[in-house]
Computed example of a mutant assay.
Amino acid sequence: MKTVLTNKNISIRTRRRALECYIEPILMYGCEAWTISKQTQKKLEATEMWFLRRMLRISWTAKKTNDTVLEEAHTTRLLINKIRKRQATFFGHVMRREKLENLVTTGMLEGKRSRGKQREKLIEGLADWLKAGKSLEATKDRKKWRTMIANAVKQGT
């Protein structure tokens, strides 16, 4: 795909579309189950910028800011929002089914917790993104849940 993505004869819009169709699905495989920490988010944003810089043939030694690169590509950062949207959609699906997946996701399994700092849960990350706090009961109502997701995507948080 390198020859297509770096070809100057193809418009940037078409190259971005090829990136979204062929590369991003591979990058986001299994993202519904990820817990995105600050470090992971920085790595994903760096990866997104790396792709854009390669498409525009901007050297890594060139002193261009990420904002300048985004302007040249006529885009904004979209990857994190796409991942969060997919996570929220999948989470709503799991919460509506009252099976084993629901118990695992909500952490209602019996047993001892491990020592040390506890890992961040998927629920906590989604609650922060949706600004829903602990009121994730909205997953039971599909329309309300979809509205919450759409509002969070629009805000671009």
Rank of each mutant, 00 (worst) to 15 (best):
Ser59Thr: 05
Glu48Asp: 08
Met1Lys: 08
Ala33His: 08
Lys134Asn: 07
Lys112Thr: 15
Gly111His: 07
Leu78Phe: 06
Leu19Met: 09
Glu24Met: 13
Asn66His: 04
Met28Ile: 10
Arg96Phe: 13
Arg119Gly: 11
Ala33Gly: 12
Ile26Leu: 13
Thr106Met: 05
Ile58Cys: 08
Thr47Met: 12
Met108Asp: 04
Glu24Pro: 06
Thr89Leu: 01
Thr61Glu: 13
Glu137Arg: 09
Ser135Ile: 11
Ile149Pro: 00
Met148Gly: 00
Met55Ile: 07
Gln155Cys: 01
Lys121Phe: 14
Glu32Met: 02
Phe51Met: 10
Thr47Gly: 10
Thr35Val: 11
Arg77His: 07
Gln41Cys: 07
Val104Lys: 13
Gly116Phe: 15
Asp67Pro: 06
Gln41Ser: 09
Leu70Tyr: 03
Gln41Asp: 07
Arg142Gly: 00
Glu32Asp: 08
Ile149Met: 00
Arg119Ile: 13
Thr75Ile: 14
Val153Thr: 02
Arg142Thr: 02
Thr157Ala: 12
Tyr22His: 11
Lys43Asn: 15
Lys140Leu: 14
Arg97Asn: 05
Gly116Pro: 11
Glu45His: 06
Arg15Pro: 12
Thr75Trp: 04
Leu122Ala: 07
Lys144Gly: 03
Pro25Asp: 10
Met95Gln: 12
Thr14Gln: 09
Ala150Tyr: 01
Ile80Ala: 00
Thr3Asn: 14
Ile26Gln: 11
Arg84Trp: 05
Arg115Thr: 12
Gly133Phe: 13
Ile26Thr: 15
Ile83Thr: 03
Ser37Met: 09
Thr105Met: 08
Leu70Gly: 04
